[in-house]
Write a protein that binds this DNA or RNA. Sequence first.
RNA 1: UACCCGAUGGUGUAAUGGUAGCACUUCGGUUUUUGGUACCGUCAGUCUAGGUUCGAAUCCUAGUCGGGUAACCA
Length: 557
Amino acid sequence: MSKSEAESVDFVRQIITQDVANKKNGGAVVTRFPPEPNGYLHIGHAKSICLNFGIAEDFGGECHLRLDDTNPEKEEVEYVESIKADVRWLGFDWGENQFFASDYFEQIYEWAVKLIQDGKAYVCDQTTEEVREYRGGWNKEGKNSPYRDRSVSENLDLFQRMRDGEFKDGEKSLRAKIDMNSPNMNLRDPAMYRIRHQHHHRTGDKWCIYPTYDWTHGQSDSIENITHSICTLEFENHRPLYDWYIAALGIHHPQQIEFARLNLTHTVMSKRKLLELVEGDYVSGWDDPRMPTISGLRRRGYPAAAIREFCAHIGVTKFNGMTDLALLELYVRNNLNKTANRAMAILDPLKVVIENYSENKSEMRKAVNNPEDESAGIREMPFSRELYIEREDFMEAPPKKFFRLAPGREVRLKNGFFLKCNDVIKDDDGNITELRCTYDPETAGGKAPDGRKPSGTIHWVSAKHAIDAEVRVYNVLFEKEKADDVPEGVDWKETINPSSLVVMNNAKLEPALADAESGACFQFERLGYFCVDNRDSKPEKLVFNRTVSLRDNKKKK
RNA sequence: UACCCGAUGGUGUAAUGGUAGCACUUCGGUUUUUGGUACCGUCAGUCUAGGUUCGAAUCCUAGUCGGGUAACCA
Protein backbone atom coordinates (compact mmCIF):
# COMPACT_ATOMS: atom_id res chain seq x y z
CA MET A 1 0.00 0.00 0.00
CA SER A 2 1.30 3.41 -0.86
CA LYS A 3 1.86 6.04 1.76
CA SER A 4 -1.01 8.20 0.62
CA GLU A 5 -3.38 5.26 0.45
CA ALA A 6 -2.48 4.28 4.00
CA GLU A 7 -3.03 7.79 5.29
CA SER A 8 -6.13 8.74 3.40
CA VAL A 9 -9.34 8.28 5.30
CA ASP A 10 -12.82 7.99 3.84
CA PHE A 11 -15.55 10.50 4.66
CA VAL A 12 -17.34 8.14 7.04
CA ARG A 13 -14.23 7.67 9.15
CA GLN A 14 -13.67 11.42 9.05
CA ILE A 15 -17.11 12.01 10.53
CA ILE A 16 -16.51 9.41 13.21
CA THR A 17 -13.07 10.77 14.02
CA GLN A 18 -14.71 14.17 14.62
CA ASP A 19 -17.43 12.64 16.78
CA VAL A 20 -14.94 10.76 18.89
CA ALA A 21 -12.86 13.91 19.33
CA ASN A 22 -15.99 15.78 20.41
CA LYS A 23 -16.83 13.01 22.88
CA LYS A 24 -20.16 12.45 21.17
CA ASN A 25 -21.74 9.29 22.62
CA GLY A 26 -19.02 9.41 25.25
CA GLY A 27 -16.50 8.73 22.51
CA ALA A 28 -17.95 5.28 21.84
CA VAL A 29 -18.19 3.79 18.36
CA VAL A 30 -20.77 1.09 17.69
CA THR A 31 -21.74 0.09 14.16
CA ARG A 32 -23.85 -2.68 12.76
CA PHE A 33 -24.21 -4.79 9.66
CA PRO A 34 -27.97 -5.30 9.18
CA PRO A 35 -28.86 -7.62 6.27
CA GLU A 36 -32.37 -8.88 5.69
CA PRO A 37 -32.27 -12.70 5.65
CA ASN A 38 -33.99 -12.93 2.29
CA GLY A 39 -31.05 -14.04 0.18
CA TYR A 40 -27.36 -14.74 0.15
CA LEU A 41 -24.76 -12.08 0.76
CA HIS A 42 -22.84 -10.77 -2.24
CA ILE A 43 -19.69 -8.78 -2.93
CA GLY A 44 -21.65 -5.56 -2.41
CA HIS A 45 -22.43 -6.66 1.13
CA ALA A 46 -18.74 -7.39 1.57
CA LYS A 47 -18.08 -3.68 1.05
CA SER A 48 -20.53 -2.84 3.82
CA ILE A 49 -19.17 -5.58 6.09
CA CYS A 50 -15.61 -4.37 5.64
CA LEU A 51 -16.72 -0.81 6.31
CA ASN A 52 -18.75 -1.50 9.44
CA PHE A 53 -16.48 -4.09 11.01
CA GLY A 54 -13.42 -2.21 9.83
CA ILE A 55 -14.57 0.99 11.54
CA ALA A 56 -15.24 -0.91 14.76
CA GLU A 57 -11.68 -2.26 14.62
CA ASP A 58 -10.15 1.11 13.76
CA PHE A 59 -11.87 2.93 16.60
CA GLY A 60 -11.76 0.17 19.21
CA GLY A 61 -15.53 -0.16 19.06
CA GLU A 62 -17.98 -2.90 18.27
CA CYS A 63 -19.88 -4.02 15.23
CA HIS A 64 -23.14 -5.89 15.67
CA LEU A 65 -24.61 -8.42 13.32
CA ARG A 66 -28.31 -7.70 13.12
CA LEU A 67 -30.71 -9.64 10.98
CA ASP A 68 -33.36 -7.26 9.82
CA ASP A 69 -36.25 -9.70 9.79
CA THR A 70 -39.35 -7.53 9.74
CA ASN A 71 -40.95 -9.04 6.65
CA PRO A 72 -41.76 -12.75 7.12
CA GLU A 73 -42.82 -13.13 3.49
CA LYS A 74 -39.31 -13.43 2.09
CA GLU A 75 -37.20 -14.48 5.03
CA GLU A 76 -35.85 -17.93 5.87
CA VAL A 77 -33.48 -19.57 8.36
CA GLU A 78 -31.37 -20.91 5.50
CA TYR A 79 -30.49 -17.32 4.71
CA VAL A 80 -29.71 -16.50 8.32
CA GLU A 81 -27.24 -19.36 8.49
CA SER A 82 -25.60 -18.49 5.18
CA ILE A 83 -25.19 -14.86 6.23
CA LYS A 84 -23.45 -15.83 9.45
CA ALA A 85 -21.17 -18.28 7.65
CA ASP A 86 -20.26 -15.72 5.00
CA VAL A 87 -19.44 -12.93 7.45
CA ARG A 88 -17.24 -15.31 9.44
CA TRP A 89 -15.54 -16.56 6.32
CA LEU A 90 -14.75 -13.00 5.34
CA GLY A 91 -12.85 -12.84 8.59
CA PHE A 92 -15.09 -10.82 10.89
CA ASP A 93 -16.41 -11.57 14.35
CA TRP A 94 -19.45 -10.03 16.00
CA GLY A 95 -18.73 -11.74 19.31
CA GLU A 96 -21.84 -11.77 21.50
CA ASN A 97 -23.48 -9.11 19.42
CA GLN A 98 -25.84 -11.09 17.27
CA PHE A 99 -29.33 -9.64 17.17
CA PHE A 100 -32.58 -9.86 15.29
CA ALA A 101 -34.95 -7.00 14.67
CA SER A 102 -37.64 -9.46 15.71
CA ASP A 103 -36.07 -9.47 19.20
CA TYR A 104 -37.48 -5.95 19.53
CA PHE A 105 -41.03 -6.51 18.30
CA GLU A 106 -42.54 -6.05 21.76
CA GLN A 107 -40.61 -2.86 22.48
CA ILE A 108 -41.38 -1.48 19.04
CA TYR A 109 -45.06 -2.23 19.61
CA GLU A 110 -44.99 -0.32 22.89
CA TRP A 111 -43.34 2.61 21.19
CA ALA A 112 -46.08 2.59 18.58
CA VAL A 113 -48.63 2.79 21.38
CA LYS A 114 -46.72 5.76 22.76
CA LEU A 115 -46.85 7.52 19.41
CA ILE A 116 -50.61 6.91 19.24
CA GLN A 117 -50.99 8.33 22.74
CA ASP A 118 -48.97 11.37 21.69
CA GLY A 119 -51.27 11.86 18.72
CA LYS A 120 -48.45 11.07 16.30
CA ALA A 121 -49.82 7.86 14.80
CA TYR A 122 -53.20 6.58 13.70
CA VAL A 123 -54.93 3.48 12.44
CA CYS A 124 -55.92 3.86 8.80
CA ASP A 125 -58.55 1.83 6.95
CA GLN A 126 -57.48 2.84 3.47
CA THR A 127 -56.48 0.18 0.99
CA THR A 128 -52.97 0.31 -0.50
CA GLU A 129 -54.52 1.75 -3.66
CA GLU A 130 -56.26 4.49 -1.71
CA VAL A 131 -53.12 5.25 0.24
CA ARG A 132 -51.20 5.61 -2.96
CA GLU A 133 -53.81 7.85 -4.47
CA TYR A 134 -54.05 10.07 -1.39
CA ARG A 135 -50.30 10.34 -1.12
CA GLY A 136 -50.19 12.29 -4.37
CA GLY A 137 -46.98 12.58 -6.32
CA TRP A 138 -43.92 14.73 -6.92
CA ASN A 139 -46.04 17.42 -8.37
CA LYS A 140 -49.33 16.39 -6.89
CA GLU A 141 -50.26 17.38 -3.43
CA GLY A 142 -51.35 14.78 -0.94
CA LYS A 143 -54.69 14.56 0.81
CA ASN A 144 -55.23 13.59 4.40
CA SER A 145 -56.66 10.15 5.02
CA PRO A 146 -60.27 10.33 6.26
CA TYR A 147 -59.12 8.24 9.23
CA ARG A 148 -56.37 10.65 10.18
CA ASP A 149 -58.26 12.34 12.96
CA ARG A 150 -59.48 9.32 14.88
CA SER A 151 -59.32 9.80 18.61
CA VAL A 152 -56.47 8.44 20.64
CA SER A 153 -58.73 5.97 22.37
CA GLU A 154 -60.19 4.70 19.14
CA ASN A 155 -56.69 4.32 17.67
CA LEU A 156 -55.52 2.49 20.76
CA ASP A 157 -58.48 0.13 20.61
CA LEU A 158 -58.10 -0.52 16.89
CA PHE A 159 -54.34 -1.06 17.14
CA GLN A 160 -54.82 -3.58 19.95
CA ARG A 161 -57.40 -5.39 17.83
CA MET A 162 -55.01 -5.38 14.88
CA ARG A 163 -52.52 -7.19 17.06
CA ASP A 164 -55.21 -9.55 18.31
CA GLY A 165 -55.88 -10.69 14.78
CA GLU A 166 -59.35 -9.27 14.30
CA PHE A 167 -58.61 -7.94 10.84
CA LYS A 168 -57.56 -9.43 7.57
CA ASP A 169 -54.31 -8.67 5.73
CA GLY A 170 -54.29 -5.17 4.35
CA GLU A 171 -57.54 -4.18 6.01
CA LYS A 172 -55.89 -1.68 8.31
CA SER A 173 -52.48 -0.18 8.91
CA LEU A 174 -50.85 2.02 11.48
CA ARG A 175 -49.46 5.23 10.05
CA ALA A 176 -47.33 8.02 11.41
CA LYS A 177 -49.08 11.39 11.35
CA ILE A 178 -46.52 13.68 9.77
CA ASP A 179 -47.27 15.77 6.69
CA MET A 180 -49.25 14.75 3.62
CA ASN A 181 -47.72 17.60 1.66
CA SER A 182 -44.07 17.05 2.43
CA PRO A 183 -41.85 17.26 -0.65
CA ASN A 184 -40.27 14.11 0.75
CA MET A 185 -42.71 11.28 0.00
CA ASN A 186 -41.38 9.29 2.94
CA LEU A 187 -42.90 11.85 5.26
CA ARG A 188 -46.43 11.67 3.81
CA ASP A 189 -47.83 9.63 6.70
CA PRO A 190 -45.69 6.51 6.20
CA ALA A 191 -46.88 3.07 7.26
CA MET A 192 -45.54 1.78 10.56
CA TYR A 193 -47.39 -1.52 10.79
CA ARG A 194 -49.08 -3.77 8.30
CA ILE A 195 -51.23 -6.81 8.91
CA ARG A 196 -49.68 -10.07 7.68
CA HIS A 197 -51.13 -13.33 8.90
CA GLN A 198 -47.89 -15.09 8.20
CA HIS A 199 -45.52 -17.43 9.98
CA HIS A 200 -42.25 -15.78 10.96
CA HIS A 201 -39.05 -17.83 10.98
CA ARG A 202 -38.35 -16.82 14.56
CA THR A 203 -41.49 -15.47 16.22
CA GLY A 204 -43.69 -18.15 14.68
CA ASP A 205 -47.36 -17.16 14.80
CA LYS A 206 -47.05 -14.81 17.74
CA TRP A 207 -47.55 -11.75 15.58
CA CYS A 208 -49.91 -10.95 12.75
CA ILE A 209 -48.80 -7.33 12.51
CA TYR A 210 -45.26 -6.53 11.43
CA PRO A 211 -43.40 -3.22 11.70
CA THR A 212 -41.99 -1.72 8.50
CA TYR A 213 -38.32 -1.11 7.84
CA ASP A 214 -38.58 2.61 8.60
CA TRP A 215 -40.39 2.05 11.85
CA THR A 216 -37.93 -0.63 12.93
CA HIS A 217 -34.49 0.26 11.80
CA GLY A 218 -33.70 3.39 13.76
CA GLN A 219 -35.37 2.02 16.86
CA SER A 220 -33.29 -1.16 16.64
CA ASP A 221 -30.18 0.95 16.21
CA SER A 222 -31.19 2.96 19.25
CA ILE A 223 -31.86 -0.10 21.42
CA GLU A 224 -28.42 -1.46 20.56
CA ASN A 225 -26.76 1.89 21.27
CA ILE A 226 -25.49 2.09 17.73
CA THR A 227 -23.60 5.36 17.28
CA HIS A 228 -23.25 5.39 13.49
CA SER A 229 -25.84 3.70 11.33
CA ILE A 230 -24.16 3.30 7.98
CA CYS A 231 -26.32 2.44 5.00
CA THR A 232 -26.41 2.87 1.25
CA LEU A 233 -27.36 5.98 -0.72
CA GLU A 234 -30.93 5.02 -1.54
CA PHE A 235 -31.83 5.61 2.10
CA GLU A 236 -30.84 9.25 2.01
CA ASN A 237 -34.46 10.27 1.59
CA HIS A 238 -35.37 8.12 4.56
CA ARG A 239 -33.05 9.91 6.95
CA PRO A 240 -35.59 12.63 7.84
CA LEU A 241 -38.03 9.87 8.79
CA TYR A 242 -35.35 7.97 10.70
CA ASP A 243 -34.68 11.17 12.65
CA TRP A 244 -38.38 11.98 13.09
CA TYR A 245 -39.20 8.65 14.74
CA ILE A 246 -36.24 8.79 17.10
CA ALA A 247 -36.98 12.40 18.04
CA ALA A 248 -40.68 11.61 18.57
CA LEU A 249 -39.67 8.82 20.94
CA GLY A 250 -36.97 10.84 22.65
CA ILE A 251 -34.54 7.93 22.68
CA HIS A 252 -30.80 7.56 21.93
CA HIS A 253 -30.21 9.03 18.51
CA PRO A 254 -27.73 7.22 16.25
CA GLN A 255 -26.50 9.07 13.17
CA GLN A 256 -27.40 7.65 9.80
CA ILE A 257 -24.64 8.02 7.19
CA GLU A 258 -25.06 6.95 3.59
CA PHE A 259 -22.41 5.72 1.16
CA ALA A 260 -22.47 4.51 -2.44
CA ARG A 261 -23.12 0.83 -2.95
CA LEU A 262 -20.74 -1.22 -5.05
CA ASN A 263 -21.49 -1.68 -8.73
CA LEU A 264 -19.34 -4.16 -10.62
CA THR A 265 -19.05 -4.54 -14.36
CA HIS A 266 -20.29 -7.74 -16.00
CA THR A 267 -22.50 -8.70 -13.11
CA VAL A 268 -25.86 -8.08 -11.48
CA MET A 269 -26.02 -7.38 -7.82
CA SER A 270 -29.63 -7.04 -6.72
CA LYS A 271 -30.92 -9.86 -4.56
CA ARG A 272 -34.04 -9.98 -6.68
CA LYS A 273 -32.06 -10.64 -9.82
CA LEU A 274 -29.73 -13.11 -8.16
CA LEU A 275 -32.81 -14.97 -6.92
CA GLU A 276 -34.14 -15.03 -10.46
CA LEU A 277 -30.90 -16.56 -11.72
CA VAL A 278 -31.10 -19.26 -9.06
CA GLU A 279 -34.79 -20.02 -9.40
CA GLY A 280 -34.70 -19.96 -13.19
CA ASP A 281 -31.77 -22.43 -13.20
CA TYR A 282 -29.57 -20.03 -15.09
CA VAL A 283 -26.93 -20.98 -12.54
CA SER A 284 -26.55 -24.04 -10.34
CA GLY A 285 -27.40 -22.25 -7.10
CA TRP A 286 -26.53 -19.32 -4.84
CA ASP A 287 -22.99 -20.67 -4.65
CA ASP A 288 -22.50 -21.15 -8.37
CA PRO A 289 -18.94 -19.96 -9.02
CA ARG A 290 -20.23 -17.41 -11.53
CA MET A 291 -22.37 -15.69 -8.92
CA PRO A 292 -21.14 -12.52 -7.19
CA THR A 293 -22.33 -14.01 -3.90
CA ILE A 294 -19.80 -14.52 -1.13
CA SER A 295 -20.49 -18.25 -1.28
CA GLY A 296 -20.04 -18.23 -5.05
CA LEU A 297 -16.77 -16.35 -4.85
CA ARG A 298 -15.58 -18.70 -2.11
CA ARG A 299 -16.41 -21.73 -4.25
CA ARG A 300 -14.76 -20.05 -7.20
CA GLY A 301 -11.58 -19.85 -5.12
CA TYR A 302 -11.43 -16.14 -4.28
CA PRO A 303 -9.49 -15.74 -1.01
CA ALA A 304 -11.28 -13.78 1.71
CA ALA A 305 -8.18 -11.64 2.12
CA ALA A 306 -8.32 -10.65 -1.54
CA ILE A 307 -11.91 -9.52 -1.15
CA ARG A 308 -10.97 -7.49 1.92
CA GLU A 309 -8.06 -5.87 0.10
CA PHE A 310 -10.29 -5.04 -2.82
CA CYS A 311 -12.83 -3.40 -0.50
CA ALA A 312 -10.11 -1.40 1.19
CA HIS A 313 -8.82 -0.23 -2.16
CA ILE A 314 -12.10 0.93 -3.67
CA GLY A 315 -12.75 3.13 -0.67
CA VAL A 316 -16.01 4.69 0.43
CA THR A 317 -17.62 7.71 -1.20
CA LYS A 318 -21.01 9.12 -2.10
CA PHE A 319 -20.33 8.80 -5.79
CA ASN A 320 -22.29 6.14 -7.63
CA GLY A 321 -19.73 4.64 -9.97
CA MET A 322 -19.02 1.39 -11.69
CA THR A 323 -16.01 -0.61 -10.57
CA ASP A 324 -14.27 -2.82 -13.09
CA LEU A 325 -14.43 -6.51 -12.30
CA ALA A 326 -10.81 -6.64 -13.46
CA LEU A 327 -9.84 -4.75 -10.32
CA LEU A 328 -11.31 -7.48 -8.11
CA GLU A 329 -9.47 -10.06 -10.19
CA LEU A 330 -6.25 -8.12 -9.77
CA TYR A 331 -6.45 -8.54 -5.99
CA VAL A 332 -7.30 -12.21 -6.38
CA ARG A 333 -4.25 -12.76 -8.58
CA ASN A 334 -1.98 -10.77 -6.31
CA ASN A 335 -3.06 -12.82 -3.34
CA LEU A 336 -2.93 -16.19 -5.06
CA ASN A 337 0.41 -15.47 -6.70
CA LYS A 338 1.95 -15.32 -3.25
CA THR A 339 0.04 -18.20 -1.69
CA ALA A 340 -0.90 -20.78 -4.32
CA ASN A 341 1.44 -23.64 -5.09
CA ARG A 342 2.20 -24.24 -8.75
CA ALA A 343 1.16 -27.38 -10.55
CA MET A 344 1.09 -28.67 -14.11
CA ALA A 345 -2.23 -29.38 -15.73
CA ILE A 346 -3.25 -29.86 -19.32
CA LEU A 347 -6.77 -28.72 -20.09
CA ASP A 348 -6.89 -29.73 -23.76
CA PRO A 349 -4.36 -32.54 -24.20
CA LEU A 350 -2.26 -33.22 -27.28
CA LYS A 351 -0.08 -36.31 -27.13
CA VAL A 352 3.66 -36.04 -27.64
CA VAL A 353 5.82 -39.09 -28.26
CA ILE A 354 9.52 -38.66 -27.60
CA GLU A 355 11.09 -41.04 -30.06
CA ASN A 356 14.55 -41.02 -28.55
CA TYR A 357 13.32 -41.71 -25.00
CA SER A 358 13.09 -45.44 -24.22
CA GLU A 359 9.68 -47.08 -23.82
CA ASN A 360 10.10 -48.42 -20.32
CA LYS A 361 12.06 -45.62 -18.82
CA SER A 362 10.75 -42.89 -16.58
CA GLU A 363 12.43 -40.45 -14.23
CA MET A 364 11.49 -37.83 -11.67
CA ARG A 365 11.99 -34.15 -12.36
CA LYS A 366 12.16 -31.54 -9.61
CA ALA A 367 9.75 -28.64 -9.64
CA VAL A 368 9.56 -25.52 -7.47
CA ASN A 369 6.21 -25.31 -5.69
CA ASN A 370 6.10 -21.54 -5.48
CA PRO A 371 8.76 -19.20 -6.82
CA GLU A 372 7.28 -16.46 -4.62
CA ASP A 373 7.64 -18.53 -1.45
CA GLU A 374 10.75 -20.58 -0.88
CA SER A 375 9.24 -22.29 2.15
CA ALA A 376 6.72 -24.00 -0.11
CA GLY A 377 9.55 -26.34 -1.13
CA ILE A 378 9.88 -28.54 -4.16
CA ARG A 379 8.15 -31.62 -5.51
CA GLU A 380 8.90 -34.28 -8.10
CA MET A 381 7.10 -34.90 -11.37
CA PRO A 382 7.40 -38.05 -13.43
CA PHE A 383 8.75 -37.72 -16.97
CA SER A 384 8.46 -40.44 -19.60
CA ARG A 385 8.33 -41.18 -23.31
CA GLU A 386 4.75 -40.05 -23.81
CA LEU A 387 3.57 -36.69 -22.62
CA TYR A 388 0.57 -34.43 -22.94
CA ILE A 389 1.00 -30.81 -23.82
CA GLU A 390 -1.63 -28.13 -24.27
CA ARG A 391 -3.10 -28.35 -27.75
CA GLU A 392 -2.83 -24.60 -28.18
CA ASP A 393 0.90 -24.76 -27.44
CA PHE A 394 1.46 -26.23 -30.90
CA MET A 395 0.88 -24.65 -34.27
CA GLU A 396 1.65 -26.21 -37.57
CA ALA A 397 2.05 -22.87 -39.28
CA PRO A 398 2.90 -20.39 -36.53
CA PRO A 399 2.69 -16.62 -36.96
CA LYS A 400 5.75 -14.52 -36.14
CA LYS A 401 4.86 -13.83 -32.51
CA PHE A 402 4.17 -17.47 -31.62
CA PHE A 403 6.91 -18.65 -29.25
CA ARG A 404 5.75 -22.20 -28.66
CA LEU A 405 6.08 -25.53 -30.40
CA ALA A 406 5.97 -25.91 -34.19
CA PRO A 407 7.39 -28.33 -36.73
CA GLY A 408 11.17 -28.25 -36.64
CA ARG A 409 11.13 -25.91 -33.67
CA GLU A 410 12.58 -26.48 -30.22
CA VAL A 411 10.95 -25.46 -26.92
CA ARG A 412 11.79 -26.06 -23.29
CA LEU A 413 9.56 -28.32 -21.24
CA LYS A 414 9.39 -26.56 -17.93
CA ASN A 415 11.42 -28.49 -15.34
CA GLY A 416 12.24 -31.02 -18.09
CA PHE A 417 14.28 -30.93 -21.26
CA PHE A 418 14.38 -29.22 -24.62
CA LEU A 419 11.92 -30.80 -26.99
CA LYS A 420 11.97 -30.65 -30.77
CA CYS A 421 9.02 -31.44 -33.00
CA ASN A 422 9.82 -33.63 -36.01
CA ASP A 423 6.49 -34.92 -37.24
CA VAL A 424 2.83 -34.21 -37.06
CA ILE A 425 0.40 -37.14 -37.08
CA LYS A 426 -3.15 -36.51 -38.27
CA ASP A 427 -6.32 -38.53 -38.54
CA ASP A 428 -8.36 -38.94 -41.71
CA ASP A 429 -10.12 -35.64 -41.10
CA GLY A 430 -6.87 -33.77 -40.84
CA ASN A 431 -7.03 -33.29 -37.07
CA ILE A 432 -3.71 -33.40 -35.30
CA THR A 433 -3.64 -36.45 -33.03
CA GLU A 434 -0.03 -36.76 -32.05
CA LEU A 435 3.37 -35.12 -32.29
CA ARG A 436 6.55 -37.11 -32.90
CA CYS A 437 9.42 -35.38 -31.15
CA THR A 438 12.94 -35.84 -29.85
CA TYR A 439 14.44 -34.49 -26.68
CA ASP A 440 17.95 -33.39 -25.83
CA PRO A 441 19.21 -35.24 -22.72
CA GLU A 442 21.96 -32.62 -22.35
CA THR A 443 19.39 -29.97 -21.44
CA ALA A 444 18.26 -31.46 -18.13
CA GLY A 445 19.15 -28.30 -16.24
CA GLY A 446 16.95 -26.25 -18.51
CA LYS A 447 19.96 -24.90 -20.37
CA ALA A 448 21.83 -26.25 -23.34
CA PRO A 449 25.61 -26.77 -23.04
CA ASP A 450 26.05 -25.05 -26.38
CA GLY A 451 24.14 -22.04 -25.12
CA ARG A 452 21.29 -22.21 -27.62
CA LYS A 453 17.99 -20.81 -26.47
CA PRO A 454 14.61 -22.40 -27.06
CA SER A 455 11.85 -20.26 -28.49
CA GLY A 456 9.66 -20.71 -25.44
CA THR A 457 8.85 -22.75 -22.36
CA ILE A 458 5.71 -24.87 -22.10
CA HIS A 459 4.11 -27.10 -19.47
CA TRP A 460 3.46 -30.83 -19.77
CA VAL A 461 2.45 -33.97 -17.87
CA SER A 462 3.58 -37.57 -18.29
CA ALA A 463 0.80 -39.45 -20.06
CA LYS A 464 1.00 -42.69 -18.16
CA HIS A 465 1.23 -40.98 -14.79
CA ALA A 466 -1.39 -38.31 -15.37
CA ILE A 467 -4.65 -38.29 -13.49
CA ASP A 468 -7.92 -37.40 -15.16
CA ALA A 469 -10.00 -34.49 -14.02
CA GLU A 470 -12.83 -32.22 -14.97
CA VAL A 471 -11.91 -28.56 -15.11
CA ARG A 472 -14.59 -25.90 -15.21
CA VAL A 473 -13.47 -22.75 -16.93
CA TYR A 474 -15.55 -19.75 -15.96
CA ASN A 475 -15.97 -16.53 -17.87
CA VAL A 476 -18.04 -13.46 -17.11
CA LEU A 477 -21.75 -14.15 -16.66
CA PHE A 478 -22.58 -11.08 -18.72
CA GLU A 479 -20.43 -9.90 -21.60
CA LYS A 480 -21.74 -6.36 -21.36
CA GLU A 481 -20.13 -4.11 -18.81
CA LYS A 482 -23.48 -2.87 -17.61
CA ALA A 483 -25.03 -6.27 -17.27
CA ASP A 484 -28.67 -5.35 -16.89
CA ASP A 485 -28.65 -2.36 -19.21
CA VAL A 486 -30.90 -3.86 -21.88
CA PRO A 487 -33.22 -2.19 -24.39
CA GLU A 488 -36.92 -1.83 -23.64
CA GLY A 489 -38.77 -5.09 -23.78
CA VAL A 490 -35.66 -7.27 -23.59
CA ASP A 491 -35.26 -9.60 -20.63
CA TRP A 492 -31.92 -8.88 -18.96
CA LYS A 493 -31.39 -12.61 -18.60
CA GLU A 494 -31.16 -12.95 -22.36
CA THR A 495 -27.76 -11.30 -22.25
CA ILE A 496 -26.23 -14.08 -20.15
CA ASN A 497 -22.93 -15.15 -21.67
CA PRO A 498 -23.48 -18.58 -23.28
CA SER A 499 -19.84 -19.43 -22.61
CA SER A 500 -19.82 -18.38 -18.99
CA LEU A 501 -19.01 -22.01 -18.18
CA VAL A 502 -16.82 -24.19 -20.38
CA VAL A 503 -16.26 -27.72 -19.08
CA MET A 504 -12.99 -29.44 -19.92
CA ASN A 505 -13.79 -33.12 -19.41
CA ASN A 506 -10.50 -34.57 -20.44
CA ALA A 507 -8.00 -32.62 -18.41
CA LYS A 508 -4.75 -34.34 -17.43
CA LEU A 509 -3.11 -33.42 -14.14
CA GLU A 510 0.28 -34.18 -12.68
CA PRO A 511 -0.05 -36.96 -10.08
CA ALA A 512 0.83 -34.73 -7.11
CA LEU A 513 -2.62 -33.20 -7.44
CA ALA A 514 -4.30 -36.50 -6.60
CA ASP A 515 -4.75 -35.69 -2.93
CA ALA A 516 -5.62 -32.03 -3.23
CA GLU A 517 -8.16 -31.12 -0.59
CA SER A 518 -11.54 -29.54 -1.16
CA GLY A 519 -11.16 -25.82 -1.76
CA ALA A 520 -7.38 -25.97 -2.20
CA CYS A 521 -6.02 -23.41 -4.67
CA PHE A 522 -3.22 -23.92 -7.19
CA GLN A 523 -1.70 -22.07 -10.00
CA PHE A 524 -1.79 -24.31 -13.03
CA GLU A 525 1.34 -23.01 -14.69
CA ARG A 526 0.74 -20.71 -17.61
CA LEU A 527 -3.05 -21.12 -17.32
CA GLY A 528 -4.35 -19.48 -14.19
CA TYR A 529 -5.50 -20.20 -10.67
CA PHE A 530 -7.70 -23.20 -10.01
CA CYS A 531 -9.30 -24.64 -6.90
CA VAL A 532 -10.80 -27.99 -5.99
CA ASP A 533 -14.58 -27.61 -6.19
CA ASN A 534 -16.04 -27.75 -2.70
CA ARG A 535 -19.22 -29.42 -3.85
CA ASP A 536 -18.67 -31.80 -6.76
CA SER A 537 -15.05 -32.91 -6.50
CA LYS A 538 -14.50 -36.51 -5.37
CA PRO A 539 -11.22 -38.38 -4.83
CA GLU A 540 -12.02 -40.66 -7.78
CA LYS A 541 -13.20 -37.77 -9.97
CA LEU A 542 -11.50 -34.49 -9.26
CA VAL A 543 -13.26 -31.31 -10.29
CA PHE A 544 -11.39 -28.02 -10.46
CA ASN A 545 -12.78 -24.52 -10.92
CA ARG A 546 -10.84 -21.84 -12.67
CA THR A 547 -10.70 -18.98 -10.19
CA VAL A 548 -9.10 -16.51 -12.58
CA SER A 549 -6.77 -16.70 -15.53
CA LEU A 550 -3.22 -15.44 -15.44
CA ARG A 551 -2.67 -12.01 -16.83
CA ASP A 552 -2.08 -12.40 -20.52
CA ASN A 553 0.30 -10.12 -22.37
CA LYS A 554 0.33 -12.16 -25.58
CA LYS A 555 -1.27 -9.44 -27.64
CA LYS A 556 1.28 -6.91 -26.58
CA LYS A 557 4.85 -6.58 -27.73
C1' U B 1 -42.48 18.07 -13.64
C1' A B 2 -40.90 18.06 -7.12
C1' C B 3 -37.29 16.86 -3.52
C1' C B 4 -32.49 14.77 -2.04
C1' C B 5 -27.49 13.51 -3.40
C1' G B 6 -23.33 13.60 -6.43
C1' A B 7 -19.49 15.14 -10.39
C1' U B 8 -11.11 15.02 -10.05
C1' G B 9 -7.07 11.06 -16.08
C1' G B 10 -10.21 5.30 -19.37
C1' U B 11 -11.35 3.13 -13.98
C1' G B 12 -11.18 3.47 -8.46
C1' U B 13 -9.65 7.33 -5.35
C1' A B 14 -6.40 11.49 -2.47
C1' A B 15 -5.63 16.62 -1.75
C1' U B 16 -10.66 19.63 3.65
C1' G B 17 -8.46 27.73 0.80
C1' G B 18 -1.76 27.13 -0.61
C1' U B 19 2.97 22.38 -5.66
C1' A B 20 -3.53 18.17 -8.42
C1' G B 21 -0.91 12.84 -5.69
C1' C B 22 -1.64 7.32 -5.54
C1' A B 23 -3.26 2.50 -7.57
C1' C B 24 -5.14 -0.06 -11.82
C1' U B 25 -5.34 0.49 -17.10
C1' U B 26 -2.52 2.27 -21.76
C1' C B 27 2.12 2.40 -24.16
C1' G B 28 7.55 1.33 -24.00
C1' G B 29 11.64 -1.20 -21.66
C1' U B 30 14.70 -4.62 -18.07
C1' U B 31 14.76 -9.43 -15.67
C1' U B 32 12.70 -14.37 -16.12
C1' U B 33 12.89 -22.32 -17.09
C1' U B 34 5.25 -19.45 -16.44
C1' G B 35 3.82 -14.66 -22.89
C1' G B 36 3.09 -15.14 -14.97
C1' U B 37 5.75 -12.37 -11.08
C1' A B 38 9.15 -8.37 -10.04
C1' C B 39 11.40 -3.77 -11.60
C1' C B 40 11.97 0.94 -14.55
C1' G B 41 9.89 4.51 -17.59
C1' U B 42 5.35 6.69 -20.11
C1' C B 43 0.44 8.83 -21.75
C1' A B 44 -3.65 10.85 -19.33
C1' G B 45 -7.72 14.65 -14.98
C1' U B 46 -10.48 19.06 -11.44
C1' C B 47 -18.35 19.22 -15.80
C1' U B 48 -19.51 24.59 -17.59
C1' A B 49 -20.12 29.87 -16.66
C1' G B 50 -19.85 33.64 -13.31
C1' G B 51 -18.44 35.35 -8.30
C1' U B 52 -15.53 35.66 -3.31
C1' U B 53 -10.05 35.57 -2.42
C1' C B 54 -3.25 37.43 -2.74
C1' G B 55 -4.58 32.36 -3.94
C1' A B 56 -10.32 27.83 -5.52
C1' A B 57 -10.68 20.85 -7.18
C1' U B 58 -12.12 22.85 -2.36
C1' C B 59 -16.41 28.43 -0.58
C1' C B 60 -21.03 31.05 -3.11
C1' U B 61 -24.65 31.45 -7.40
C1' A B 62 -26.57 29.55 -11.85
C1' G B 63 -26.47 25.92 -15.49
C1' U B 64 -25.19 20.94 -17.48
C1' C B 65 -24.88 15.90 -16.71
C1' G B 66 -25.55 11.44 -13.59
C1' G B 67 -27.96 8.72 -9.51
C1' G B 68 -31.95 8.13 -5.96
C1' U B 69 -37.08 8.80 -4.33
C1' A B 70 -44.16 8.53 -5.03
C1' A B 71 -44.33 -0.76 -1.32
C1' C B 72 -48.65 -1.90 3.98
C1' C B 73 -40.20 -4.21 0.48
C1' A B 74 -35.50 -3.58 2.70
